[in-house]
Amino acid sequence: MQYQWIDKYCLSKKAAEKDYQIEWEATRYFVGGKIFAMVGGDKYKKSIITLKCEPIFGQFLRDENKNIVPGYHMNKKHWNSVYLEDDVPDNLLKQMIDMSYKLVLNSLSKKVQEEISKEI
C-alpha cells in the first residue's frame, strides 16, 4: 500500500481511536464511538479506505475518479470507498478523511463534542 501515512493521519485527529475488526479484516477509526474511516479490502481483497462524505461531494468524486466508488458494505449515499492500490492524490484523500471526521464529530451529541474539544 502506497498510503502508509493513513494510520498516523487518522490517529492525529482529536479523540481518534482505532481497532481491528477480525471478521471484516479491517482497521476501523472512531471518534466518540462512531466510525469515521475504515481500511480493509473489497471482496477481491483489493485495499480500500471507506469514508463518509457529503452526498453531493461524494457523487462528484465518484464521477471524477474511477478509483472512488460507493461505500463498500456501507450506505452508498453517505460513504465512499477509495482504492488504495491506485493513484488517488494524497491531498484529496486527506481532504476526504478530514470531511469524514468532521461529519461524524458533528453528528455526536453536543455534550460529547464539548468533551472532545476540551481534550488535549
Rank of each mutant, 00 (worst) to 15 (best):
Y3H: 14
Q4N: 10
Q4W: 05
Q4H: 13
Q4Y: 12
W5M: 14
W5I: 14
I6N: 04
K8N: 12
K8F: 03
K8P: 05
Y9Q: 03
Y9R: 01
Y9L: 11
C10R: 00
C10W: 01
C10T: 01
L11P: 08
S12I: 06
S12T: 04
S12W: 04
K13W: 03
K13H: 11
K13S: 12
K14I: 11
K14V: 10
K14H: 09
A15Y: 03
A15P: 04
A16D: 06
E17K: 05
K18S: 14
K18V: 08
K18Q: 15
D19F: 11
D19I: 06
D19G: 08
D19T: 12
Y20V: 09
Y20G: 07
Y20A: 11
Y20E: 12
Q21R: 04
Q21K: 10
Q21Y: 10
Q21S: 13
I22G: 13
E23L: 15
W24N: 03
W24G: 08
W24Q: 07
E25M: 09
E25T: 05
E25F: 12
E25R: 13
E25D: 15
A26G: 13
A26D: 02
T27M: 07
R28H: 13
R28V: 14
R28N: 10
R28S: 13
R28P: 07
R28Q: 10
R28Y: 03
Y29E: 00
Y29M: 03
Y29V: 04
Y29D: 00
Y29L: 08
Y29H: 05
F30C: 03
F30V: 02
V31Q: 02
V31M: 00
V31S: 01
V31L: 02
G32V: 06
G32Q: 00
G32C: 03
G33L: 04
G33T: 00
K34R: 12
K34P: 05
K34A: 05
K34W: 00
I35Q: 00
I35D: 04
F36I: 05
F36C: 07
F36R: 00
F36Q: 03
A37C: 07
A37E: 00
M38F: 04
M38T: 12
M38R: 00
V39E: 07
V39Q: 06
V39I: 11
V39D: 07
V39L: 13
V39N: 03
G40S: 05
G40T: 07
G40R: 01
G41D: 09
D42P: 11
D42K: 01
D42N: 12
D42S: 09
K43G: 13
K43S: 07
K43L: 14
K43Q: 12
K43P: 10
Y44T: 15
Y44S: 15
Y44N: 13
K45L: 11
K45V: 14
K45P: 04
K45E: 15
K45T: 10
S47R: 08
S47P: 15
S47A: 14
S47V: 15
S47Q: 15
I48Y: 01
I48K: 01
I49R: 01
I49F: 08
I49Y: 01
I49N: 01
I49V: 14
T50M: 06
T50D: 08
T50S: 14
L51A: 12
L51I: 14
L51D: 04
L51Q: 01
K52E: 04
K52F: 09
K52Q: 08
K52R: 05
K52V: 05
K52W: 09
K52Y: 06
K52G: 07
C53I: 03
